[in-house]
């Protein structure tokens, strides 16, 4: 089953991202440079096509990402987590058998986190999911090539190649990945899942490939009236997410690790 190792290398590595990214980093950090805008502009066309199921391979002309405004993220609200569970069949997991509580762990793709600054007492809420790094540590450590980054920036697991070693779980600074401990039943057609593999947020990849606009968490958050999460193409300067990133200060969690995450947070 390793016949596609080379293919994986070619989809994840050849991204001529350094030029674009250098541009984008500058433009996210401070003022939008003219050069950055010019560099990312070609993405606009390709992005607006979609709608039917994809028939062409994904390309690096887009990079999907999320911007989460923690100021709008409400205490006690779990709409994004619940929607993610439903969308991805995570609510169908039913721990059974075995005495061990570890065996009963369920996979989660989004965790709601509460941070407290001990000096000021300020509390921040935020949903934490796979951060879709440009340089994902999970991909670096994967021995089989199962953990990979799609050309459009989505970091995911090819379960056909995953041997369940869980190196990626150890390597992830965000604890974003889950292991499936038990046999599963009643899976959704769009989201296969089975014992012995690792999985995590894939930015609703089935929605991406059908040209839909957003993710389940974004829809749910908007429906609750919070609108704390924006989804979109980081390479398209006119996308809602890029515009918002230009307007408000935002950060990467653990930016000291220089992973260039696709998920950004405001108000932290």
């Amino acid at each position: 089953m390793n016949e596609n190792a080379t293919r994986i290398a070619s989809t994840s590595d050849e991204t001529p991202a350094s030029t674009v990214d250098a541009g984008r980093r500058g433009f996210i950090g401070t003022a939008a440079g003219l050069s950055a805008a010019a560099l990312v502009a070609p993405g606009v066309f390709l992005h607006s096509v979609a709608a039917a199921p994809r028939s062409e391979p994904v390309t690096d002309s887009v990079r999907w990402g999320l911007l989460i405004d923690t100021a709008k993220c409400a205490d006690g609200c779990s709409a994004c987590v619940d929607a993610c569970d439903r969308e991805n069949g995570l609510d169908l997991q039913e721990p059974h058998g075995s005495e061990s509580k570890w065996e009963h762990q369920k996979a989660v793709w989004i965790r709601k986190i509460k941070l407290q600054d001990n000096q000021t007492g300020r509390i921040t809420q935020l949903p934490l999911m796979c951060q879709h790094c440009e340089h994902p540590p999970c991909v670096d450590v994967c021995p089989t090539g199962a953990s990979f980054k799609r050309a459009d920036g989505i970091v995911m697991v090819d379960r056909h190649l995953c041997i369940g070693c869980r190196y990626c779980m150890m390597a992830c600074p965000y604890k974003a990945r889950s292991f499936i401990h038990q046999p599963t039943t009643g899976q959704l057609t769009a989201v296969p899942r089975g014992k012995g593999c690792v999985e995590s947020c894939n930015l609703c990849v089935h929605r991406r490939d059908h040209g839909e606009e957003s993710t389940a968490c974004v829809d749910a958050c908007a429906q609750e009236g919070h609108g704390a999460i924006v989804f979109g193409d980081l390479k398209d300067p006119d996308s809602a997410i890029s515009q918002r990133l230009r307007e408000i200060p935002s950060r990467q969690i653990r930016e000291d690790l220089v992973l260039n995450t696709g998920v950004r947070y405001a108000g932290v």
């Binding site: 293919r7 989809t11 028939s55 994904v58 799609r150 090819d158 057609t189 991406r208 490939d209 059908h210």
Partner: peptide, 21 residues
């Protein structure tokens, strides 16, 4: 089909396992 769907996001082709089912 499996490789082109999972790695390249191609969904519009006729050999999908979902389609067989």
């Amino acid at each position: 089909q499996r490789i082109s769907t999972v790695h390249e996001g191609i969904r519009g082709t006729k050999y999908s396992l979902t389609g067989c089912v």
